[in-house]
Every structure is written in structure tokens, then in C-alpha cells.
Amino acid sequence: MKVRIFVTLKDGVLDPQGKAIHHALESLDFSGVNDVRAGKLIELDVDPSVSREEIDRMCDKLLANTVIENYEIELPEMTSGTVS
């Protein structure tokens, strides 16, 4: 099954990449963009036997640095109906 993990910087953590993207959008004359935050999307293809707790552990141990990042796990609707 395909699991999607969104890794984003915590609120209050400066995001230089997001700022650069914001600046680039403005220089392309797009207006009305108030802020940009850039993150990562990590897609895992895992066996159905892999539990949600196991995926949490993967995030805590490697995929996100919880000093500066938050993560959200998106499981396929059909399997669990859970989207955190």
C-alpha cells in the first residue's frame, strides 16, 4: 500500500527556501501570496501488514527531525480511512 508522509517545518522555524520561492513568485508578478512554506513529501510503498505505529516510528527515527519538523501520515482511504 502507498503511504504518503508530509514533512513540514514547525511554526516559528525560519524557512529560507519558502522565502526564496515567495520572492520568486513576486518577481514573476504573482500577487496576493502571503507566505510560502516548503516541505517534503515522502511516499512509501509498504506491505499491508505494516502498522500505523510502525510508520510513526519510521518518522520519529529517521524521516523527520522532530526538533524542527512536523510530519503527517496519510494512509490509503480504503485500508483504514485514517488521515492524520
Partner: peptide
């Protein structure tokens, strides 16, 4: 060690 090293603020 505590903390994290992030992208330089001016990129």
C-alpha cells in the same frame, strides 16, 4: 548535541 543545523538564512 541539542538543536539542528538548517539551511543558511540567506540560502
Amino acid at each position: 548535541l541539542p538543536g539542528a543545523l538548517m539551511r543558511n538564512s540567506n540560502i
